[in-house]
Amino acid sequence: MASLKELSKRTEGLVGGHRACAGCAASTAIRQILLAAGDKPTVTGICTGCMEVVTTIFPYTAWNVNLVHNAFENSAATVSGMEAAYRALKRKGKIDAEIQFIAFGGDGGTYDIGLQSLSGAIERRHKMLYVCYDNEAYMNTGYQRSSATPYCAHTTTSPAGTKIPGKPQKRKDLTEIIIAHEPAYAAQATPGYYMDLIRKVEKALAADGPSFINVLSPCVPGWGYPLDQTMNISKLAVETLFWPIYEWQDGKYKINIKPREPKPLVDFLKLQARFRHLLKPGNEHLLEELQAEVNRRWEVLLRKEQATNG
């Protein structure tokens, strides 16, 4: 795996001057991913969403590689079409280079409106990496709930009211849905653990077929935390078991970080305005529910790892 020193000598795929909010994790994640991919020719696509909007305001693009934006729900289908054309043109001798393809989408574009397009592209076994930068809500349109939004989180369409304490439903487990497609590689990651993310990108791009990485990307205005805390929150998500970072390949699970003593979930929640209402007296049971759910999912993941590494 490339060291930070080696990576720092590569050309940046995403440069400065973009309009992402200060402290944005998704832009860091995309930078890290393009650096990891950067030693080979890379062509990318992106869903409509925060990252597309802030990085491509005409005539200014922050992308140093070819980028294709089509619409909101179809970056997987679009990049699958590019990959198909690449194979056709290569066969005809019109292209020599070995090109790798990466599609990006937010959780709205991936968990929700683009799920079908992604499912289809993986089922058709296009050799491409799909990265979901998951900030757990529709941040681009102003923090509306998505199926990636966790239980009880306040968003502008799942507000914490006097009767309903934030989003009433649990988050959908997209990574498991993708694993059910048996891709060539799948993983969860977060930019706070950048070496882990970089290694996963290298592995995904080397895999012979479709690959998927779900990257938890804290959002300063959407989650409501101090803007210098992005990487700390990203790490806390892993240390509290809220966002286990693991990978799946050839039928086997591997959990990449197993905290010896997991931190209580409240350490992660209390830094964020979207969970602030849970700390009010009378909501203790909700905190307990959330902690129990995190524990339960972690246990399931551990059992999957055991069962598949027998």
Binding site: V15, G16, G17, H18, R19, A22, T55, T56, F58, P59, Y60, T61, A62, W63, N64, V65
Partner: peptide
């Protein structure tokens, strides 16, 4: 946008 990395012309330092 028919060239790469043109956002370098857009300075965000004053944010």
């Amino acid at each position: 946008i028919d060239e790469a990395a043109t956002s370098l012309r857009f300075k965000t330092g004053d944010w």
